[in-house]
Structure formats: structure tokens, C-alpha cells
Design a protein around this nucleic acid. Structure first.
Lengths: 144, 144
DNA sequence: CCCTTATTTAGAATGATTCCAATTATTGAC
DNA sequence: GTCAATAATTGGAATCATTCTAAATAAGGG
């Protein structure tokens, strides 16, 4: 990533954080960078491990704090796919997750707009959809 | 519930367990009963508390074992709505969960068949869908 | 009724997340 | 730029959720 892009990203990240009442910190930039660099839906622990490579003193609690801030300001989504650790996803476009119950692989698939148009409980104010499709990926189907 | 219904349910539960290679036990019946009695998407801990009222010696590990067996034989669904404890749902019809991020209430809503018809990754074998709609329930909208 | 083997049990162990109190860093006002 | 106010970070302890373990018990087929 070149310096100009970097600077632009920092600026946008700062704005997003600020409008939700959060401060811009180097840790939050680092955590957001980690998520953008490898979009494989890492757990908080995995984010922590990767962030430590760039920022050796970052702590566990800070990673959770940063992830929560990024979720709260709409830059990152929390993804719950199985019992156990939550995963994080910086793709904010409408999409669903195909999840391989065998190997744990996750595939983002764009959502057709009509997929999210069911009538809900009366008065319910929708914030967002979380659509997970469970099954077996092509590789794991072959192996059986 | 009258004895005849009870007996029928036991029989069906036994068959379902057997066809997946599980044995019928009083603990599994108890856990399944608990889920059927109050369909509020309890966590494993809540199931444990309720099951203990009917079966004081049932253990934590057994509740997890029973829930896993019921999920494996297709009588119960696991539902992941937020960071933290997994919830359990005995409604096996195609439906999605409207989840109030404020108060934690969960509403089952039947799915129109066209909602689950998106093209997925090549070769992916779909097992089932988990659709969660996050937002605020009518009550919580009013309170603000 | 006996045998085999799955299941249950209590408690320890692990994993994921949150809490805490002290320190540090960011931001806005001057 | 300096200062004060306060949000964020830190490391570690604490808590919550789940899994593991080894011994005791119970199902189900023959």
C-alpha cells in the first residue's frame, strides 16, 4: 500500500470513528488493517496474533475494544457461524456467508436484493441481515 | 400433556435418535421436553437450569451431549445470534430469526421459499440456512 | 439375563470474552 | 503549542461457555 492510499484510509477511518464518538488510535488502525489485509474471517484471537506482528505490545483487551469500535461505527461485521469464537469481516456490502461445516472455509456471496424482503414482526426496526449457508465446500464433498 | 401424546412423542424421539445411531435416554427426553415446553431460544445454561427442575441430578456435560445429539438427528437447531452463548430451537420448519439487539428477544418468522435460492460457490453442497435479522423489536423502538 | 458399548456424572481443563485499576494517548480549548 | 478532561490501552485477573476425562451407570441386542 503506498503512502497516499494509506493516508486516505486513515482519514476515512478517523472520520468514521469520530462520527460514532470514538477516537482514532494507532491500535484501531492496526486492527482494521489486519482485517483488510487478509479477508478470511479471522477470530478475535487470530486478529490479535496478526496485529502483534505489526504492534508487539498490543493487548488482547485492546483487540476486542478495537473490533467493537469498528463494528459500532459500521466498518466491520461480526459473524457467528458456529459454537465458539466469533469471526470478523470488513466486507460491508450485502452478502451472505457460505460456511463449510467440514473444514471451516467461508465464502462471501453477494446477495440479490430480493433475498432480504420478508415481512417481519410488526413494528420491528431492521438494522441488518446475517445470512449463513451451512454445508460442504467442493473440496470436502470430493474427499468423501 | 396427556400420557398418550407423551408416549407418541417418546416413540418418535426414540426413532429419530436410533436412525442416527443414538440411544434413547431419559436425559435426552428431558432436554427435548424442555425445549418444546418454552420455545424462547434458551442457551445451554438455561436448558440446564430448566432440566434440573425435572431431573435434579442431570449434569452440564449431559445437557451439551443431549443438545448435540438432538441437533445431529435433526430435531433441534443451533442458533448463533451474538457473541457468547449458543441458543437452541426445536422449530425445524424453514424460518428465520428476528433478533432484538436491545432486549435479546427472538421471533421466528416463516421463510418464503424464494428467500433461499441464491447461487452459491461452485460445488458447494448446501445443508441448511441460518438467517438472522438484527434490529429493534417494537417495544424497544417505543422506549426510545 | 448378560454383554457390549454408549451415556452419564462431577469436576477439572480449556477457550473466549470481559472486567479492573493504573498508565498513556487523543482531543478540544486557550 | 500547552493543558485539562477523558477515552483508550495495558496486563492480568475474573468470568462465562464449552469440552474433556475417567469411573460409574444404563440401553439394547442376543
Amino acid at each position: 500500500m503506498n503512502p497516499v492510499e494509506n493516508h486516505t484510509l486513515d482519514h476515512e477511518l478517523g472520520e468514521r470513528l469520530a462520527t460514532s464518538g470514538f477516537r482514532f488510535t494507532s491500535q484501531r488502525r492496526c486492527v482494521y488493517d489486519v482485517l483488510l489485509q487478509k479477508r478470511d474471517h479471522p477470530t478475535a484471537e487470530e486478529v490479535f496474533q496478526r496485529a502483534k506482528r505489526q504492534m508487539p505490545d498490543i493487548s488482547h483487551a485492546t483487540v476486542y475494544n478495537c473490533l467493537d469500535a469498528l463494528v459500532a461505527c459500521g466498518l466491520v461485521r461480526q459473524v457467528q457461524l458456529e459454537r465458539g469464537a466469533t469471526r470478523y469481516c470488513p466486507n460491508m456490502e450485502e452478502h451472505c456467508h457460505y460456511y463449510c461445516d467440514e473444514c471451516g472455509a467461508v465464502f462471501d456471496v453477494a446477495l440479490p436484493p430480493e433475498a432480504t424482503s420478508m415481512p417481519g414482526p410488526k413494528g420491528f426496526k431492521i438494522d441488518h441481515y446475517e445470512i449463513a449457508v451451512h454445508g460442504f465446500c467442493a473440496d470436502c464433498v470430493k474427499k468423501k
